[in-house]
Structures are given as structure tokens and as C-alpha cells.
Design a protein around this nucleic acid. Structure first.
Length: 260
DNA sequence: ATGTCGCATTCCATGCGA
């Protein structure tokens, strides 16, 4: 099965590009982030017309995540456990029945956290703690799963064209990279890191400063496979060409194939 | 020279978030 994750930066603005991606790549599962709309405004019917069902958590203007799938989800978990007061639409789990048993998909939009040292930064670190806790719970179930989305973490110096420019940024501070590594060290495979290095792994180019033309990119969209899921990995791709389509998202899709 | 986007509102101009 083909799994994709894509921060679309407004699903309504990106509907044509999303359709083009679905037709061209034919993913079975698509994790979307930054929908930037409430659930009532999500293009559910339009995507059904393309053959995809949608589980959606929306929010006005900001955030918003979804899981598109050919087959219906058997079960969902809406929102990241660990803080009942957190109302930001950043986390959605969906469980599906595969050929070898159930598997789980998480679509997540980890907080940006800038500027560092503010409440936003503290929220990011706390959110990462909650994510690690939830990941630990899911690992204990031994049901294969993927954590997919915009992590807003540049894992290493090779994952930025100009790492020096990110030294004080909440996407690259040691504290944040360490939290990401703690998560990885629980046994996840960062599937793109396994197949790409340097610029070939970039997933984001800012709209500003002609970043795409200068290839001033970073790798922040990740697809992490649990150990049982990683055993079933058969392919990885990054669809950087979408960044050059008309009215593109600033992020591009990461795609992985699993025998599930 | 924050020079780009997308969204929202105080709505054709500005603030926020990224």
C-alpha cells in the first residue's frame, strides 16, 4: 500500500494540486496537514469523487489535519492525548484493515514553536513529550503504524541547505532535535532519511526569497515507521516536482510503500 | 528589502502565522 503525507497549506487553495497528485501517484492513504478550514468547509464530496474517504479535524484559519483513504477507517482517535484543554487541530489517528491485519496511521502537524523562548516554544516541547508518550503506548500494542506529517523539526545539518541560518530557530534548536531523536530512538525508521540525504530529501522551500529557485530547502515532513511497519517498507519517494506546479504548497509530499 | 502566501477582519488595508 502506498502512504503519503503532505502539508497542503490550505486544502481549499490546493484542491486542484491535490487532485493532480492523487491521480498521478495513486496513494492508498494520504495524511494531510494545514487544512486551514473547519470540517464543514473541507472538500469531502470533491475527494469522494476521486475515490477517497476523509477523516478530518478542522479549525478556522489555522492547523487542521486529515487522513484520506480508499477504504473506510475502522476506528479513529481524534486529538493528541495528554492535554484535554488543547484545542488545536493537529493530530488524528486512523486504523485500517490490511491484508496481514490492522495497521494505524497518524497524521500530525507538530507546532512550529517560533519564536524560541515563548509560550509557543514551550507548547511545542510539551506537544513533543505528549507525542513520545502516545508513541510509546502505540508501540506496546504491536500493531504496525506510521507517524506521518509536518514535524517542524530539521533533524540534522544535512537536512538544511543553509544550516547556519537555522541555528536559533525552533525547527533546529538542540532541545527540539533531541526530543525528535528521543522519539526516533524508540525504534522508528525515518523512511526518507533511510533513502535520501542532503538536498534530495528536502520537503519544504519557503515562498520567500526565491527559496525554491535557489534550492534553499529543508527536510521537516517526515514519515516514521514503527518497527513492525519498517519491516514491511518497500519504497520511498519525495514528490518535489509538486513544488513547481501552479499555486504550490510550500511543502511537498513524502510517499512510502509498505506491504501491509 | 519579511521581497511570499493564506486566512481573517477592523474588509481594498492590515495583522497573524508560517
Amino acid at each position: 500500500m502506498r502512504f503519503a503525507t503532505w502539508n497542503v497549506n490550505s486544502v481549499r487553495k490546493r484542491l486542484d494540486g491535490l487532485r493532480r497528485f492523487l491521480k498521478g501517484v495513486e496513494p492508498d492513504i494520504v495524511c494531510l496537514q494545514e487544512l486551514k478550514c473547519v470540517e464543514q468547509d473541507f472538500p469531502t464530496l470533491e475527494l469522494l469523487g476521486e475515490g477517497y474517504r476523509a477523516e478530518v479535524i478542522g479549525q478556522k484559519a489555522y492547523n487542521g489535519v486529515a487522513v484520506l483513504s480508499r477504504a473506510a477507517a475502522r476506528e479513529t482517535v481524534r486529538g493528541l492525548p495528554g492535554d484535554a484543554a488543547d484545542e488545536q487541530a493537529r493530530y488524528l489517528e486512523a486504523v485500517f484493515d490490511g491484508a496481514h491485519g490492522p495497521f494505524r496511521v497518524v497524521s500530525l502537524y507538530l507546532p512550529n514553536g517560533n519564536p524560541a523562548g515563548t509560550e509557543k516554544y514551550a507548547y511545542k516541547l510539551k506537544w513533543m513529550e505528549r507525542l513520545e508518550q502516545r508513541a510509546a503506548e502505540l508501540l506496546e500494542t504491536e500493531v504496525p503504524f506510521v507517524l506521518a506529517g509536518d514535524f517542524n523539526v530539521i533533524p540534522g545539518r544535512a537536512d538544511a541547505a543553509d544550516p547556519a541560518a537555522w541555528e536559533t530557530d525552533a525547527l533546529f534548536l538542540p532541545e527540539v532535535r533531541n526530543a525528535f531523536r528521543r522519539l526516533l530512538n524508540r525504534g522508528f525508521l525515518d523512511v526518507a532519511a533511510a533513502r535520501f540525504s542532503g538536498a534530495s530529501g528536502f520537503t519544504f522551500w519557503d515562498y520567500q526569497g526565491a527559496a525554491r529557485a535557489r534550492n534553499n530547502g529543508i527536510r521537516i515532513d517526515h514519515l516514521l515507521a514503527s518497527p513492525a511497519m519498517a519491516d514491511r517498507l518497500t519504497g520511498v519517494a519525495i514528490h518535489a516536482e509538486t513544488r513547481d506546479w501552479p499555486e504550490p504548497s510550500d511543502h511537498v509530499p513524502v510517499v512510502a510503500e509498505f506491504d501491509v
